[in-house]
Simulated scan of single mutants.
Amino acid sequence: MVAHGRQAAMIEEEAYRILGTPRFGGILVISDHASNLVPADIDLGIDPALMNDHIAIDIGVGAVGELMAQNPGIAAFQGNVSRLVCDFNRDEDSLASVPEVSDGVEIPGNRGGVHEARLARFYRPYHSALAHLLVETPPSLILSLHSFTPQLASDPHSHRPWDCGVLYNQDDRASRVAIPLLDAEGLHVGENEPYSGKILNTTMNVHAEAEGRPYFGVEIRQDKVTTSAQQEEWAERLVRICNRVAIAIGE
């Protein structure tokens, strides 16, 4: 059961935050897009209302990760700035790591040679800290937690019916256990949906696949994780499932 009335301990830096206490052999929940924060000295040049939209943040995952981190043996590593400031789940040399356009919305503040400065200020410290954490307190399982919009504005005919998706690249050890467990919850589960982890999986490719660390990615549809009650339900569910996956792959 997810613990209530208790706040996860937090370490906070400009690029990332760590919730809970990472433990050797525990579970680490990584959310690259948990924040919609824009530092005061950065002007993206867009309507402020868009900062609550999916282009700026993975709605719900910050709260779910924080709830999960209230449980012993589970910690959360979360991005601490908006994905529009710097997208940690894109390749460093990709223009998408500092996006000039997101789902059809132009981001004028990301033009004009800001790319390298953003990488130095946010991207590299984020990935360096994550790499250090994984070496210092190696977990038995990594959960990569994201959320997705039911429909893209740039593709109005798209239909994303899944309650959640499980993503992986080559290493499917944990995913093969997690998918039937999520199915058993009565959920409509997409395998490598709404997009494939074989195509878009930067953080897990670098920190899990390349190092042989077991992981699986979960994408929750955002209308399923918007309210506090939904977030608590998903946190409780993912705590149970992650524990079962960690035991299964460790046997």
Results as ranks from 00 to 15, higher is better:
108 P>M: 00
39 P>H: 14
130 L>I: 12
159 H>I: 13
234 W>Y: 13
112 G>Y: 02
226 T>Q: 10
83 R>P: 11
171 D>G: 07
211 E>D: 12
73 G>F: 00
149 T>P: 07
114 V>Y: 03
160 R>T: 11
212 G>M: 10
233 E>V: 06
75 A>C: 14
250 G>N: 07
62 G>E: 08
3 A>Q: 04
118 R>A: 03
147 S>T: 04
46 I>K: 01
233 E>L: 11
191 E>D: 14
135 V>C: 09
172 D>T: 05
250 G>P: 03
74 I>S: 05
47 D>P: 14
235 A>R: 06
171 D>A: 08
44 L>T: 13
117 A>M: 10
136 E>R: 14
54 H>Y: 00
162 W>N: 12
138 P>D: 08
15 A>C: 15
228 S>N: 07
154 S>R: 02
166 V>M: 05
187 L>S: 07
51 M>V: 11
165 G>R: 07
72 P>F: 04
34 A>S: 06
244 R>G: 09
92 E>L: 03
246 A>Q: 02
53 D>K: 07
19 L>A: 13
14 E>Y: 12
1 M>R: 15
127 H>K: 10
54 H>R: 01
63 A>Y: 01
117 A>L: 14
128 S>W: 09
130 L>D: 13
113 G>M: 04
225 V>S: 15
64 V>M: 08
88 F>I: 11
144 S>K: 04
172 D>G: 05
99 P>H: 01
206 V>Q: 14
71 N>Q: 01
140 S>Y: 00
250 G>A: 08
17 R>V: 08
41 D>Q: 05
110 N>C: 02
4 H>E: 13
54 H>V: 01
69 A>P: 01
197 G>I: 09
127 H>P: 11
22 P>G: 09
160 R>S: 04
50 L>I: 09
32 D>P: 12
248 A>R: 02
101 V>D: 00
62 G>N: 05
113 G>I: 08
25 G>E: 01
